[in-house]
């Protein structure tokens, strides 16, 4: 589903590569933790999957497509198959829960009838039933992140990228977030989650890919966060 072959990324005005000859394979339906200290290249990895950045070297395949051969015109179609969740939620403050989730479908031109049917289902899936008409500021951090996950998943993407989704959330609430991610994973969606949260990684027992200074130092199925140390 995601295939990195010897990928190197150097940002302009920097001599140290953000990713250094990284090769990794993620299969369909896998749940992968991307761990490592700040600046180790986790976010760069996710940005490359979305084609927000281009690699200096190596090739990237996502959902069967070679990103180097994907024209800019087709990038939006790639992104429709990838859902994204961030540490800072990125909800629209002037829209309620329902509208925030529906927005993702409206802007890709889905018919209204389809939106009316799908959005409530996804809101229920993330455990926010009965809160569809709340505004983001009326929700807790954990609930806001559930809205963001609903928005990321509402178009049934093949891949879900999560960049430290529990970074702003207390440990107890994080468990609920992880349960939702697990539920999404069980529908067949590949989940790639970058995180610092050792407790979560240890409790989930999923595949762990560890980056350090842009290099993969560990790739372990059913791994834990700090085993290498």
């Amino acid at each position: 589903m995601i295939h990195f072959d010897n990928v190197t990324k150097v940002y302009a005005n920097q001599n140290r590569p953000a990713l250094d000859h990284v090769s990794v394979d993620v299969d369909k339906g896998e749940f992968v933790f991307l761990v490592g200290p700040s600046g180790s290249g986790k976010s760069t990895f996710l940005r490359l999957v979305l084609k927000e950045e281009r690699p200096n070297n190596g090739s990237i395949h996502v959902a069967g497509k070679d990103l180097s051969k994907l024209s800019n015109f087709k990038v939006p179609h790639l992104r429709r198959r990838i859902g994204c969740v961030f540490q800072d939620f990125r909800l629209l403050p002037n829209k309620n829960v329902y509208e925030n989730v529906a927005f993702a479908l409206e802007v890709i031109g889905k018919p209204r009838r389809f939106i009316r049917k799908v959005v409530p289902e996804v809101i229920e899936l993330v455990g926010l039933e009965g809160k569809a008409h709340r505004m983001p500021e009326e929700l807790s951090g954990g609930e806001q992140q559930r809205v963001a996950m609903a928005r990321a998943f509402v178009n049934r993407p093949m891949i879900l990228l999560a960049d430290e989704p529990t970074g702003n959330i207390d440990p107890a609430t994080s468990i609920g977030i992880m349960k939702v991610l697990d539920r999404i994973n069980r529908t067949g969606t590949t989940v790639l989650m970058a995180t610092h949260d050792a407790a979560i990684v240890d409790s989930m027992r999923k595949r762990v890919v560890e980056l350090e200074d842009g290099k993969i130092v560990r790739d372990q199925s059913r791994g834990v966060y700090g085993q290498a140390y």
């Binding site: 015109f73 993702a104 802007v107 890709i108």
Partner: peptide, 17 residues
């Protein structure tokens, strides 16, 4: 920029944005 950022993320086409 918030709206357009999200639109970009969820794959809205350039014309739509």
């Amino acid at each position: 920029r918030r709206e357009t950022g999200i639109m970009r993320l969820v794959g809205a086409s350039n014309i739509y944005i």
